[in-house]
Design a protein around this nucleic acid. Structure first.
Lengths: 232, 232
DNA sequence: GACAATGTAAAACAAATGTTTAATATTGTC
DNA sequence: GACAATATTAAACATTTGTTTTACATTGTC
């Protein structure tokens, strides 16, 4: 009835095909999305039979989820560690150093054809076109990272209440995700005559822009009109 | 050979079906995307025959493009006008007023089931999963708006060079697009126990955050370390 | 009323989809 | 070598896909 039981490691060869399918699926699902990628596209790229997908993963939808899950854990932990490392520095980092580290850790996976890049494609797509079970992506990835970011931002010397922290992280992530889009569209932008989009230049701007923004939010308490400036 | 010739207005009835198909297509394409929406889904929603899509639009892909095009012009012009109106105010608006108007004009279409909301769904999807001809969306919508935004920001009293203006607009739009996502995911976020995402509260934060960020970028000339503050 | 033109409808089309079946190969164990 | 378990393959499965064909209805014109 249900042939999906995840054996996948009886022989090294079997494990190999299992891995090849997962690899091809991550690549193709990330590039073209769930519907636009056929099972035959994947098995062709993985150089195996069509039935192998159902044998190893029990169906296309489950393969999509497993492709995502296989990347999610390592990437989430990597970013968690990145933030922990930032907070563990001997002299506490300035807000600018914190933001620089955050941005580089966020955008670094984009530069080469790495696991992180594939995952980013997945994430971009999933955010605007949910295909995973409700809450899965949010609970397993987004929320832990936001929580960690909020609490790490808390120790960087800028006094923010929880709501302010959340909104500041929201603004930071919004900018960085948009930079991901800009990076993906860079070729097209330049092809049609737009200004070249450079990640390096953007990070400089991002740090300056966001540091001032965060400080402005911190210094805003009860006074209705906000003024920038006022740090040590 | 090619039955698509856009007659579409010989009889009032014909024009009506034409419109019904376009309406259903905008709704469904925006909600589920190109591949996940079948021609039969559309014709069922439009209450007409399957062949009508090919008769009136010459195929599914062309219908997708036409659905987008029909929204693009009005929405772009509306936002252009919004920015023009902002700039034409008798006393020149402050940066905060400018940002408030910009954010409200950007997010306003989200509140109800309007043309703007449909278009936003389309845009979100298209940004992370391009289905339209290369450059079309960029040239017809994104670039004109960015250009207008850059030049309008130029007259609000904050001295920015072109590169700084571009990056600031980039940061602003990144935050607002992410707010769109947050708004779309609001139900899901709250269902899983997250903090409620309120557009109103976000706009307040956004204005404070971005005004400080923009001023920081403006005051940054040759000094490597940027300090916020310093407006009139 | 006849004619032509245009819109609509039902049916059929070939191609592609995800999945399953059944047969074959491969491996480890006795 | 025989047996059983696992993995791979080729073929077939039933649907669904976008599109086309053919016939029918409607309308305006003479």
């Amino acid at each position: 009835m249900s042939p999906r039981r995840h054996p996948c490691d009886d022989t090294p060869e079997a494990r190999e095909t299992h891995e090849r399918i997962l690899d091809a699926a991550q690549k193709l699902f990330g590039e073209k999305g769930l519907e636009a990628t056929s099972v035959r596209d994947i098995t062709a790229a993985a150089d195996c039979n069509v039935a192998a997908v159902n044998y190893h993963f029990g169906g296309k939808e489950n393969l999509y989820l497993e492709s995502f899950r296989a990347m999610l854990g390592p990437l989430r932990d990597q970013r968690m560690a990145m933030m922990d490392e930032l907070m563990a520095r001997k002299p506490a980092p300035t807000l600018e150093e914190y933001l620089t580290g955050f941005a580089e850790g966020f955008l670094e996976p984009l530069v080469d054809e790495s696991l992180g890049r594939r995952f980013m494609l997945f994430v971009s797509r999933e955010i605007s076109d949910q295909k995973l079970p409700t809450g899965f992506f949010l609970d397993e990835f987004i929320r832990p990272l936001i929580d960690r970011a909020v609490s790490s931002l808390d120790r960087v010397g800028v006094p923010l209440n929880p709501e302010q922290s959340f909104y500041c992280i929201f603004s930071v992530i919004g900018q960085l995700l948009h930079a991901v889009k800009g990076h993906h569209m860079a070729a097209e932008i330049e092809a049609t005559g737009g200004p070249p989009f450079e990640l390096k230049g953007f990070v400089d701007h991002f740090v300056r822009f966001s540091a001032a923004g965060i400080r402005a939010c911190a210094s805003h308490e009860t006074t209705p009109t906000a003024n920038a400036g006022g740090e040590s």
